[in-house]
């Protein structure tokens, strides 16, 4: 669980943009070391407003993906961060009311297609803003680079 306005410098500090993964991991979220130490593959981050504000660096969602985070549900997102997530096929969804509906360690499930978010621990259901068909397609194809590779393969045939 995170608060509002968490910026991309926290997820990918400028000084580590060219560093190895161990160093990046050590520098991520200086104010939330507990998170980096305890995050498990498959965990979902729940956050407040304006998650991912700041720099356009794609390292931010990439680093979260590498940590094993399976999705981020936030009250709202900064737009460049959000676009980057679609481009690298990392499910992030804006879900108004999420911070009220979930506690740390609840079990949560996200269906990208319908936008339905289920809190399995408390049998509650919320609606995230659903993806458009274009966004779903890009994520299903594994991101924009995969799409481009497929387009090239198709045009070479």
């Amino acid at each position: 669980m995170f608060g509002d306005d968490v910026d991309t410098d926290q997820m990918a500090p400028f000084a580590t943009l060219t560093s190895g993964w161990d160093e990046i991991k050590k520098a991520m979220f200086p104010e939330r070391r507990d998170f980096v130490d305890s995050v498990q593959p498959g965990d979902i981050i729940v956050a407040g407003r304006n998650w991912g504000c700041g720099s356009s660096r794609e390292h931010a969602p990439e680093n979260l993906k590498k940590l094993g985070v399976s999705a981020v549900l936030a009250e709202s997102f900064a737009r460049i961060y959000f676009r980057n997530c679609i481009a690298i096929a990392f499910p992030n969804a804006a879900c108004p009311g999420i911070t009220q509906a979930v506690d740390a360690r609840d079990e949560v499930e996200l269906d990208l297609e319908t936008g339905i978010v289920k809190n399995l621990t408390r049998s509650r259901q919320l609606r995230a803003n659903p993806y458009t068909k274009e966004m779903l397609d890009i994520v299903a194809e594994g991101g924009l680079m995969n799409r481009l590779a497929a387009q090239i393969a198709a045009s070479n045939r």
Binding site: G54, S56, E58, R83, N84, A87, I88, L144, M145
Partner: peptide
């Protein structure tokens, strides 16, 4: 670069994007 909005000062629609989108 996220500050590509600066081009708005001369009436251009400038916006920042991440690496994958720019590459595409």
């Amino acid at each position: 670069d996220s500050h590509s909005t600066t081009y708005g000062a001369i009436g251009a629609a400038g916006t920042g994007l991440g690496l994958t989108e720019i590459s595409y």
